[in-house]
Amino acid sequence: MSYKASLGDLKPQVKRFNAAIGETAKGFGAIAASLRGDGALSHKQKEFVALGIAVAIRCEPCILFHTEALIRMGATREEVAEVLAVAVEMGGGPGVMYGSKALAAYDELSA
């Protein structure tokens, strides 16, 4: 499995889906946009939270999108690994399995 290929396949699928759901996509987009800037937490910190949640709920596409965002923001492998350790604490065994996927995605997407 290639995480780059999966991400490449997902982006146009999500774009087509968003076009199909119109106003709902715009509403969700507004929520996401409202969280992009820095507030009490930096945008990067919010992406770390999102990645941890993505692992805990086992959302592989979410893992890919938030990992890609963190790479763009300059997150280190060590920072990502620490977030994944917290996800393991909160998610138990499934956190280990999806945490390993998230770290492999980081390694491939940052190469």
Rank of each mutant, 00 (worst) to 15 (best):
Y106H: 10
P12N: 06
G92V: 07
S2I: 00
E47R: 10
N18V: 02
V86G: 14
I71G: 07
K26W: 02
G39C: 03
K11P: 00
R36G: 05
T76H: 01
Q45S: 09
M1F: 11
R77V: 02
R16I: 04
L7M: 06
C59Q: 06
H43T: 02
P94H: 08
S110E: 00
A111H: 12
A81C: 04
A33C: 01
A81K: 05
A87E: 08
G8M: 05
P12K: 08
Q45R: 10
S110A: 10
A30C: 09
D38I: 10
A102W: 07
A19H: 06
R77D: 00
I53K: 09
A102Y: 11
A33Q: 14
G93D: 04
I57G: 02
L35V: 07
G91F: 07
L103F: 01
A56M: 13
S6D: 14
A40M: 12
R36D: 01
S34L: 00
G91C: 04
K26L: 05
H43Q: 12
E108L: 09
F65R: 03
A33N: 12
G27I: 00
V55A: 07
E23C: 00
V96P: 06
A56S: 14
A85F: 13
I63A: 05
E108D: 12
A19S: 13
H66K: 00
R36V: 09
A32Y: 12
H43V: 04
V96G: 10
E23L: 14
A75V: 00
G95F: 05
E60V: 12
Q45Y: 12
T67F: 06
V14Q: 14
M73Y: 14
A25D: 09
A30R: 14
L103T: 06
A20Y: 05
M97D: 03
K44A: 05
F17L: 15
S100G: 07
I63T: 06
V86F: 15
P94A: 06
F65G: 00
G52V: 10
A56L: 13
H66Q: 02
A56H: 10
F17N: 08
A20E: 15
A32L: 12
G91I: 02
G91H: 09
M1P: 01
P61H: 01
V83H: 03
I53N: 07
G95H: 01
M1Y: 12
G39A: 02
R72I: 04
S2T: 01
V86M: 15
G99Q: 05
K4R: 15
V14N: 11
L64V: 08
L51D: 06
A54L: 05
T24P: 07
S34K: 03
V80M: 01
G8P: 08
Y98R: 10
A111G: 13
K46P: 14
G37L: 11
K46F: 08
K15W: 05
L64P: 09
G93L: 01
Q45W: 07
A54I: 06
E108G: 09
A85G: 08
G27E: 03
E47S: 11
E47I: 00
E78H: 00
V80C: 05
A40R: 14
G8A: 02
T24D: 13
F17Y: 15
V55D: 09
A33L: 11
P94L: 04
F28M: 12
A25V: 01
A30I: 00
D38H: 13
E82R: 09
L103S: 08
A81H: 04
A32C: 03
A111P: 12
Y3A: 08
A32S: 09
E78R: 03
L41R: 13
A54E: 07
